[in-house]
Design a protein around this nucleic acid. Structure first.
Length: 420
RNA sequence: GGGGGAAUGUCCCGAGCGGCAAAGGGGGCGGACUGUAAAUCCGCUGGCUAUGCCUUCGCAGGUUCGAGUCCUGCUUCCCCCA
């Protein structure tokens, strides 16, 4: 995005200055719509997991800004499209999910949106839709005649997502090949039902979105618009939000607020400014100040980033608590009472529990074998003392002043063991 | 329809004369150095009631003291010819 385009609408102005925009089909046209508060927009979310993770956060933030700048955001549950599976950016077919899984996932995902958007019937209130509502009712022949005839297979074959599969000689099922048609049709359907004129998404969705605009034109909608966000990677090139330890989930039952706060606290120096703009709502001049901090002072900026980002998802109180827990744990080296914890029956603790087993139970390591290896490498600690004997027992005498045992893996991951 | 190849450690890529818990990467985890950063260096990277036992090389059988490695059938994918 390096145009000299000067947005008139609050919506585009914010998105441009905060770095949300990768591509837009028509800046001027969309700007006018947004200025009039008529830029009703949707973003589709596939129901492939019981929670969204950090990878979807940019999209969610775009919807939030949309609402804050006087337009109507519509998160779309891909209840129908999830049954098909998006081939974009994938080099192999998705697993087919069962209907039960999809329902379950939708319920989890809805909880996330409630944190970011105000729902209701007002003009700028968010409205949640599910494409299963219309996609599952489609009649095959009718769909082919009304919608299918507008799609050129020649053109679809030239789209990145499809071409890649073909070039790499990887299977692309007819089921997946249809995904684009369905997503395009969603756009048209949403326009007809709710007057949606804009579809946003990650840059990998550009092709699908534009194809929806095209279909709209052929099927007689008014002008539709596309807006995509850059695909987020960390400065060192890793994909955002997915580590081998697991994705950075937004639902607290999948990842504790404390761990969520830690994720942001561990941001690389180079990413701090960019992330503050995308994932917090701090004013731009404040961000400029924070991002200019040099050397170890940048850590202050990271703490603010962590607290602001966590507050958005888990609420201000939880965020402050996570920040305080981190302060006590890292800056004072104590076992903050509010660290994530697990319970263990008091009788078992008094009888003595094997260290290895305890670390496995706490979920810090996957198996006794891994625990042993960590002991060898000096990675496990009980109450900050390195575990040297893998046969050691943890007993009631290990309880600290707060009545808990602090288990640590490495320098960053801590869990409290509490007798119950 | 005919001919030829491929499937390896449940994160990925990938070597593998009949003795293999299976080379090497990447990724990840841990350690050192730092600032809970990056870069760099080092270690680890099947499971267990553990000087041993169990489970792994697409699936099912077979040959053999012994099979990822050889044979047969099957599945999936790729290439060439038609």
């Amino acid at each position: 995005m390096s145009t000299s385009f000067k947005p008139q609408s609050d919506f585009l102005r914010v998105l441009v200055e905060r770095g949300y925009i990768h591509q837009c089909s028509d800046f001027e046209g969309l700007d006018a719509k947004a200025k009039a508060g008529e830029a009703t927009a949707y973003i589709g979310f596939d129901a492939t997991a019981p929670s969204l993770h950090v990878g979807s956060l940019v999209q969610i933030m775009m919807l939030r800004w949309m609402q804050k700048t006087g337009n109507k955001p519509m998160p779309l549950m891909g209840g129908g499209t999830t049954m098909v599976g998006d081939p974009s950016g994938r080099d192999e077919s998705r697993k087919i999910l069962t209907m039960d899984d999809i329902e379950n996932n939708k319920a989890g995902i809805k909880r996330v949106f409630a944190k970011f958007l105000t729902f209701g019937d007002g003009r700028t209130d968010a409205h949640m839709v599910d494409n299963a509502e219309w996609l599952t009712k489609l009649n095959y022949i009718e769909f082919l005649r009304d919608v299918g005839r507008h799609f050129s297979v020649n053109r679809m074959l030239s789209m990145d997502s499809v071409r890649m599969r073909i070039e790499r000689e990887q299977e692309l099922s007819f089921l997946e090949f249809n995904y684009m048609c369905l997503q395009s049709y969603d756009f048209v359907e949403l326009h007809r039902r709710y007057g949606v004129v804009l579809q946003m998404g990650g840059s990998d969705q550009w092709g699908n979105i534009v194809s929806g605009i095209d279909l709209g034109r052929r099927m007689g909608t008014s002008q539709l618009y596309a807006l995509t966000s850059p695909l987020l990677t960390t400065a060192s090139g890793a994909k955002m939000g997915k580590t081998a330890a697991g994705a950075i989930w937004l639902n607290p039952d999948m990842l504790s607020p404390y761990d969520y706060w830690q994720f942001w606290r561990n941001t690389e120096d180079r990413d701090v400014g960019r992330f503050l703009k995308l994932f917090t709502e701090l004013p731009m001049d404040e961000i400029a100040r924070l991002e200019a901090l040099g050397g170890s002072e940048i850590n202050e900026a990271k703490k603010i980033l962590a607290t602001e980002a966590a507050a958005m998802v888990h609420g201000r109180d939880e965020a402050e608590r996570a920040a305080e827990t981190a302060r006590q744990t890292f800056e004072q080296g104590m076992a903050a009472e509010t660290l994530p914890s697990i319970d263990v029956p008091r009788a078992e603790l008094e009888a003595g529990l094997g260290v290895l087993n305890v670390f496995v139970t706490a979920g810090l390591v996957a198996s006794n074998g891994e625990a042993r290896r960590q002991v060898k490498g000096g990675g496990l600690r009980v109450n900050d003392a390195p575990v040297t004997d893998e046969k050691a027992l943890i007993t009631a005498s290990d309880l600290n002043a707060d009545g808990a045992v602090k288990l640590s893996l490495g320098k960053k991951r801590h869990i409290l063991l509490r007798p119950r």
